[in-house]
Write a protein that binds this DNA or RNA. Structure first.
Lengths: 199, 199
DNA sequence: CCTTTATTGGAATGCTCGCTCTAGAATACC
DNA sequence: GGTATTCTAGAGCGAGCATTCCAATAAAGG
């Protein structure tokens, strides 16, 4: 090694994420990122190589954070475990509002032109799904006795989509979704019990 | 009047919407819109004046379509009416998938820099909310006996957010959300009954 | 120290894109 | 059929942006 880094990765990634969340890709120009983070464009390019690649790193960090928490939070078994998973989505929005907004608003396909990414990064993006896909299958099997696509999808909806739907308005406004925790639980329970194979 | 239009508004708006849905604002360059619709940039500017204004027209057309259907579909009263509203969101996704994707993906704030719009268009955008806000208040009053913000919000979640959350995957994949209709009804019912003032 | 290497810093470059401009074509009205 | 008006058509302009480049700087190893 040699000279120490003056601008940390996190500062640059935070700035990029915040700009993305506020004004979309159009607002996250290299100039704006440089101004907000303090890192000159030269340094940013030295480290990330391209704007698309930088976006990919932001995306990876956010999704990784979400997933790590999700896997850690889903203890127990059966319905209890499912509810824990759904609740984590709310918890994540509370703890990391900016990251949650990124997940909620940004369409990965609109952020990243995958063709422009180095194979390594592209691989990291595809590998991202594996552990969560496994969790989904697990939950589906526990609850319905099968991990058939339709059941897996139901679990995905219950664990991710419905909680985010409920939390969405709060993220936009910047208020806390805390009071909606029980609403999420109620809804998820109803969703699953309507199709549960056995209680 | 004088010379007839060669390129219809709908063709231009469709092209713009499709590009927005596929690749976000970055992909909807005037050049791309021109190429996809067949209308030269000169004609586009003659008609809309600016790219932001064109985006606003796309947005207005989509939201208007959604709302017109919503208001028409919400007949009956009480829970029945609420379920009809929620179901329309699914129906809309079936009938107008591209419009639904726009509503789902695009953040109005990221699409439109309101400051750049002519007062007339800006007014049209703000006026857009009124009829639906009224419907929401109506439903909240019918169901909970009050249209207090928290109840109105619950209705919004039940009518719009949850249905879209459930439909999201289908919109991305291009498959039909038809089989999930009952799932939406079940979820919405659970959501509301957990807080209903009286049955 | 002196070399090597990683990083900084920001000026310079080249290109894309929104928008303007102007010439011409089609229609309406007299 | 002349004139006014609206629209088409696309070439061209200028700004802003992603990216490159390179001189300067700091640390590590010998």
């Amino acid at each position: 090694m040699s000279r120490r880094r003056v601008h940390s990765d996190d500062v640059i990634l935070d700035a990029t994420r915040d700009l993305l969340v506020r004004g979309g890709p159009d607002a996250a120009t290299t100039g704006a990122i440089s101004a907000l983070s303090g890192a000159p464009t030269g340094s940013i390019y030295h480290r990330y190589g391209s704007r698309t690649r930088l976006f990919a790193e932001v995306w990876l960090r956010t999704v990784t954070r979400f997933q790590a928490g999700l896997l850690a939070a889903t203890t127990g078994s059966g319905l209890e475990r499912l509810l824990a998973a759904a609740d984590w989505t709310v918890e994540f929005a509370v703890r990391h509002p900016a990251d949650a907004r990124l997940l909620l608003q940004a369409d990965r396909a609109q952020l990243l032109v995958e063709a422009e990414l180095p194979p390594e990064t592209r691989r990291a993006l595809t590998d991202l799904n594996a552990p969560v896909a496994e969790l989904i299958r697990d939950l589906a099997t526990e609850l319905f006795g099968t991990a058939a696509p339709e059941h897996a999808e139901l679990v995905s909806i219950a664990v991710v989509d419905v909680p985010y739907a409920i939390v969405r308005r709060h993220l936009r406004r910047g208020t806390s979704p805390e009071p909606h925790r029980d609403l999420v639980a109620t809804t998820v329970r109803a969703l699953v019990e309507s199709r549960a194979v056995r209680p």
